[in-house]
Nucleic acid binder design. Structure first.
Length: 657
DNA sequence: GTGGCTTCATAGTA
DNA sequence: CTACTATGAAGCCA
């Protein structure tokens, strides 16, 4: 595989300078990231991400099989130093269509940025671009569950990648660190969105209880199309042509919206923050008309994110009706409209369930079906509750709780072990850090500990590294961060879920247990249901923002394929942690990622689980167990258990094991 | 079509 | 931990 700019020549003719979309500035004019020696041994000649046109997930399933006529927006880090020499801005791909004439911006990076607004993508490009994702005009107007999930994952992958590049100072656009806005802008202006058609009531593909971490996510799936405004409304559909109607509101605590009853919301109108009276116009008028016409209003409730106190979680709480409105005197003296919204009965619990969880966690309310407050008996820093509110079974089979790996022999990997000498924390973009170099120059996690991309192997700092224990490159070593709960499922035995909302890309837990070898598996009789085995056949899936050409995407070599130095087999039959309770699903919400770090002078591969997408509280956590190999190349393991799959997903393969 | 205006955002800093 | 502020983008509206 060739790396770097060499691939530029493979681009379809007529490609535009995609850097313009993101205004990426070439900063990495450094020497090649890898010392040649390290590269030869560690990476088997695989090169870091080179120059690709945009090719997001799912496109290979799209109807069109021909290569893109027009490349997608902005491959991130479309610029990277080549192997052979130092790259200069002169090597930057040059716009080849007539649209982009202001290339002087790049040639003179010091020029003031404030003078020009960011150029928008042309309309033609928007259509071509979204067709790559399989988003036709119809899907842009009306969504479905699969599309909503795809868009949310696309947004988040892009946002994480932009954030990663910002963290490492490879991307400097303006002064703000708003990866969410930039990711949103790229997708929205390319038409990569859905439910654009305004509607009253439910939005296809979005379910009550769905959670979001950015307002732009609400825009992209069409749940609430204002990026900042609290009231989304339309002028269409009222009895009177000129009557606006409210569509959705976001309640996020700027005003005091709370009511005692979680099915009731007291919402304040907009405007009037300087002390003058609010006016019956815009959103306020729309809410008033919705009150009179008794139409449904979607309600999104924002709350502080417990994990990340500076950010918010938004939960879609379904439909409400406006029952009453009045004017109150606001804090700054002016009149403020108040609207009383009451939840339409018969909908699944969402916000109300969060409120219950808060009470359980605070010990205010007792939990029905609680068997054990802490299944881990203190082995985890955070208690793991054991609950059965389904039947009479009192406990899962006996095992010893262990929070990490137990191994009797070392599992040597094929490259020499090294530790980093960073003084305090390892700094993204610091290529003097040997741990960062091993991660292909990318810091694997964002500042708040979210995995940016799936990798064949993630290298974390180890015990011997000089950096502090708080170094951001130790995400999977710091134990559970969420309130986990082992619970009895309807039909799949015991399962695992979280009491906290989990953001896509966050570390959940590792697969703890005894590291064993193939012989031991056979000795156990091949019927150990608690074996994790990296050599099984796993369904490939896209999670990264990784622009690729079509031919590359269809090839077998993906950076998201697993490729671990040596097989890892872990049995959690006798000892293990919460991970042993995670059930299989053919469309899971969790994936595993091998993570290597040194302990006791041995590099050890751990199996870490990360959230594949945002996961609401009390949602069962599942991953894809993969399939046993039927050939004999990995030893005779044929007569093992196999189970009927009950995951109920539309992509269900019928069985697993 | 366009530019102004409003807005229950965010992240970073004090 | 809260307050403050700089930057920001979607969509309504004139």
């Amino acid at each position: 595989m060739q790396g770097g700019l060499g691939q530029n020549s493979n681009l379809p003719s007529g490609s535009i300078d995609k850097t313009r979309v993101l205004d990426v500035k070439p900063l990495r004019t450094l020497d090649p990231v890898f010392p040649n020696s390290a590269r030869a041994t560690t990476f088997d000649g695989a090169c870091p991400t080179g120059f690709y046109s945009f090719f997001p997930f799912g496109a290979s399933q799209g109807p069109q099989a021909s290569p893109p006529k027009v490349p997608m927006p902005a491959p991130l880090r479309s610029f990277r130093s080549s192997d052979t020499g130092e790259a200069t801005p002169a090597e930057f791909p040059v716009a080849s269509n007539g649209e982009n004439t202001d290339s002087h911006d790049r040639a003179a990076p010091n020029k003031s940025r404030s003078s020009k607004k960011k150029p928008k993508i042309s309309q033609d490009l928007q259509i071509d671009v979204s067709s790559l994702l399989g988003i036709g005009k119809n899907e842009r107007e009306d969504g479905n569950r699969e599309l909503v999930n795809l868009l949310l994952m696309t947004f988040d992958a892009l946002r994480r990648r932009i954030g990663q590049l910002e963290d490492s100072k490879e991307l400097t656009l303006g002064l703000s660190k708003r990866a969410d806005m930039r990711a949103g802008n790229i997708l929205m202006s390319a038409g990569i969105r859905t439910n654009l058609r305004k509607r009253i009531g439910a939005v296809p593909g979005v379910e009550i209880g769905d959670i979001f971490f950015f307002r732009l996510e609400l825009c992209i799936v069409g749940l609430h199309s204002q990026s900042m405004g609290g009231i989304d409304y339309t002028n269409m559909g009222g009895k009177n042509e000129s009557d606006p109607l409210a569509l959705a509101i976001v309640s996020s605590g700027k005003y005091n919206d709370n009511a005692e009853d979680s099915d009731i919301l007291i919402y304040s109108g907009q405007g009037g923050d300087k002390g003058d009276d609010q006016k019956l116009e815009r959103g306020n008028l729309a809410l008033d008309r919705s009150l009179r016409q008794k139409t449904d209003v979607r309600v999104i409730r924002g709350m502080k994110d417990q994990m990340n106190s500076t950010s918010k979680v938004y939960i879609y709480d379904g439909l409400y009706k406006i029952q009453d409105s009045w004017v109150e005197k606001g804090k700054s003296g002016g009149g403020v409209f108040k609207y009383k919204l009451v939840r339409v009965p018969g909908q699944p619990r969402a916000f109300a369930a969060w409120k219950s969880i808060e009470k359980w966690k605070g010990g205010i309310a007792s939990r029905t079906g609680l068997i054990l407050a802490d299944l881990s008996s203190g082995a985890e820093k955070i208690p793991v509750s054991l609950v059965n509110d389904f039947d009479d079974e009192k406990a899962p089979g006996y095992f010893t709780y262990l929070h990490s790996l137990r191994y009797s022999k070392s599992f040597i990997v094929s490259h020499p072990y090294d530790f980093c000498n960073c003084q305090k924390d390892c700094i993204p973009g610091d290529l003097n850090c040997s741990c960062i170099r091993r991660n292909e120059g990318d810091f694997p996690y964002t500042g708040n500990g979210i995995l940016v991309s799936r990798k064949k192997l993630v290298y974390e700092c180890g015990l011997s590294c000089q950096c502090s224990p708080n170094c951001k490159n130790r995400v999977s070593q710091t134990g559970l961060k969420y309130r986990m709960e082992v619970f009895k499922t309807k039909d799949r035995g015991w399962g695992l879920r979280s009491l906290d909302p989990i953001r896509a890309g966050t570390f959940i837990c590792e697969y703890a247990g005894e590291v064993i070898d193939r012989a031991r598996v056979r000795w156990n009789g091949n019927n150990d249901e608690y074996v994790f085995d990296t050599t099984r056949i796993y369904q490939p899936f896209k999670w990264n923002y990784e622009p690729k050409l079509l031919e590359e995407a269809s090839s077998n070599d993906s950076s998201e394929d697993y490729d671990i130095p040596s097989p890892v087999i872990i049995s959690a039959k006798n000892v293990g942690n919460v991970a042993r309770f995670m059930n299989h699903s053919c469309s899971p919400n969790v994936f595993w990622q091998p993570v290597l770090y040194e302990e006791n002078n041995q590099p050890v591969v751990h199996i870490s689980f990360f959230a594949l997408r945002h996961i609401p509280p009390l949602t069962e956590l599942t991953y894809d167990y993969g399939a046993a190999r039927s050939d004999s190349t990995v030893g005779h393991i044929a007569p093992r258990w196999k189970k009927k799959c009950l995951c109920a997903s539309s992509k269900c393969r019928g069985s697993f094991g």
